[in-house]
């Protein structure tokens, strides 16, 4: 690990003063950044510890929640309002990592964690445009079982690894950001980028910008929701496919719904085509499979991940089947 200075920020303005310096990076729980530094993938000169900032979960007057970026994953998953009103989010968090890591990891850090593409991590042995722009991509023709089928580019086929973020994409969350030019808010689904020809840039955040909070709008049918994750072992593994869904029924028709997929793209994938196909229609297994087929119509599978569109379809059908018949969990 290259040497660096460490400073703990007591307030956002102080964090921004340090964080805008060249070579500075914000530090949350460290569960990803410390590993990246040890591997030589990240080499900050200065770490600004922001874990003491924005650590509260506030109930909003409209029924939503304002979640501080420094809130630990476990604290968010166990919050009564999250368990009752946003169970999809609680389950997504609990599907991720291990209990020890969830106790350390922050909300802001979860959003900014980097891909677990093997070739991104293989500093000595592999080419990677995300790690070393212009060097090439060894995943395209390599072992790419875990890689993207939607929205990828010739430069990068990596996936975003977060479970929490899949739920946030489905829940129409808003991200609050502080920066040297002032504060701004953006839709969560606009935070992460598709790789295009700049896979080194995971998000639209500018240098020095700091995520301060994530806000959830109220969702009247948020309690009828879940998160399901398919992976190579039963626990403590990244998703091959995951699906977050919430459904509101009107008789035997779907009045409204939210769907997002994980493990399929460079960003958490909000499934707007599948939602449009199902909204107002019947809640049948065929309708669910057809909706998934519409979402994955543009899929470009690689050598090892051609199973993903079909697996995503079956996962969606299973989850929506449960949610539309009241058999959740």
């Amino acid at each position: 690990m290259t040497p660096f200075d460490y400073a703990r920020a007591g307030e956002v303005a102080e964090a921004l003063r340090h964080g805008t310096a060249p070579g500075a990076a914000y530090l949350g729980g460290g569960t990803n950044l410390v590993d990246l530094m040890r591997e030589g993938i990240a080499r900050p000169d200065r770490l600004i510890d922001v874990t003491g900032l924005s650590t509260t979960i506030e109930e909003r007057a409209d029924g939503g929640l304002l979640i501080g970026a420094g809130v630990r994953n476990t604290a968010l998953a166990e919050h009564p309002a999250v368990r009752q009103r946003y169970p999809m989010l609680a389950r997504a968090i609990l599907a991720g990592a291990s209990a020890q890591i969830r106790n350390m990891a922050t909300v802001g850090g979860n959003l900014l964690q980097r891909t677990r593409c093997f070739y991104f991590y293989d500093v000595d042995g592999a080419r990677c445009n995300k790690r070393e722009p212009g060097s090439g991509c060894d995943a395209q023709d390599g072992f790419n079982r875990i890689h993207a089928v939607l929205g990828a580019s010739d430069a990068c086929v990596a996936t975003h690894p977060s479970d929490m973020c899949v739920a946030l994409a489905a829940l129409d969350a808003t991200v609050h950001v502080a920066g040297p030019q002032g504060s701004r808010s953006l839709p969560f689904t606009d935070l992460h980028r598709l790789p295009g020809d700049r896979p080194d840039q995971d998000t639209v955040l500018a240098a020095g910008e700091l995520i301060t909070a994530v806000e959830l709008a109220p969702l009247s049918f948020g309690a009828n929701a879940t998160y399901r994750k398919m992976r190579d072992r039963a626990s403590y593994a990244f998703a091959l496919i995951s699906v977050a869904a919430a459904v509101e029924m009107d008789g035997d028709r779907i009045a409204d719904l939210r769907i997002a997929f994980g493990g399929v793209a460079h960003k958490p994938w909000r499934a707007t085509k599948a939602e449009a196909a199902l909204r107002g229609g019947p809640a049948t297994q065929q309708a669910f499979l057809d909706a998934a087929a519409a979402e994955f119509a543009d899929a470009r599978p690689l050598r090892d991940n051609a199973f993903k569109p079909a697996l995503a379809g079956r996962a969606l059908a299973a989850v929506l089947g449960a949610l539309t018949t009241g058999d959740v969990a």
Partner: peptide
């Protein structure tokens, strides 16, 4: 009282 991974924890934190 909370379990964490000491390998991913910087001692100064």
């Amino acid at each position: 009282g909370e379990r964490i991974l000491s390998c991913l924890a910087l001692a100064v934190q």
